[in-house]
Design a protein around this nucleic acid. Structure first.
Lengths: 131, 131
DNA sequence: CGGTATCCGAGTCGATACTG
DNA sequence: CAGTATCGACTCGGATACCG
């Protein structure tokens, strides 16, 4: 499998002496870490842009506080773009940057691992029809 | 690129209505989440097995408490295997299970993203093109 | 050698109330 | 509509001390 080959290659890099203090994997995990971050990125994947209220409706359990805070974090990290329209009524549009969209392959790889080792059914009623 | 294609495929799954409450990606992220987890998995990748003291030496800043606790968590999650030898002197050997080793492709994909968007050397804002 | 027990500070998450 | 401010519960990680 190609992926395994590349993973082996990566292992070799690790073995070559990559320090763990400035580990890019850990840093990325910390970026993704946070109860709502992936959920919000998910939602923003579905459309070219999304308004605050739309996100709030899509994520019924999130509070305004958390939505704002997470959105700000993601914006600061360069993953989400915020565009404000000061018309009447005012509104804001959130969208994913290229950096944010590039997270999709990562999510996909995680998803594959989860399917295999966490179990497809435990992972929810995904559209695994006949597959 | 093949990976992009599959990621697109995955996006379609998400769009198909995958709920976010039982999201496998989030669950996996929570498994990986923890200051020392990836570091320990890293170390265990380097050798077929590793003793407690070896791990402690490889991760100088970790305390016994955290090492034990993280190892136990990882064991409970089926990622790490613990084998105890009650000889004199007694010792313990830790190793990665297949489930644990299968995390490598995930790490690799995260690593690729980090290289590109976190920058190989610095935490720069990545190659943002007019997207 | 390979841990366990306990305490504590810092950070995360959520509820509530209020605003331009 | 799209937030901000504040407070408290809970969890995580680290320090310290001790054990089979």
């Amino acid at each position: 499998m190609k992926t395994d080959q590349t993973a082996q290659d990566y292992l070799r890099q690790v073995l070559a002496g990559e320090p763990d203090d400035d580990c890019p994997v850990r840093r990325t995990l910390e970026i993704l870490n946070g109860k709502w971050r992936t959920h919000i990125i998910y939602e923003l994947c579905k459309k070219p842009f999304c308004r605050f209220g739309e996100l709030k409706r899509a994520l019924p359990r999130i509070t305004s506080t958390m939505l704002t805070s997470t959105l700000r974090d993601l914006e600061r990290l360069g993953i989400v773009r915020r565009e404000q329209y000061n018309e009447i009524p005012p509104h804001v549009e959130y969208s994913l940057t290229e950096k944010g969209r590039a997270l999709l392959p990562v999510f996909f790889e995680i998803h594959r691992w989860a399917q295999r080792y966490l179990g497809p059914e435990a992972a929810g009623p995904g559209p695994e029809s006949g597959d």
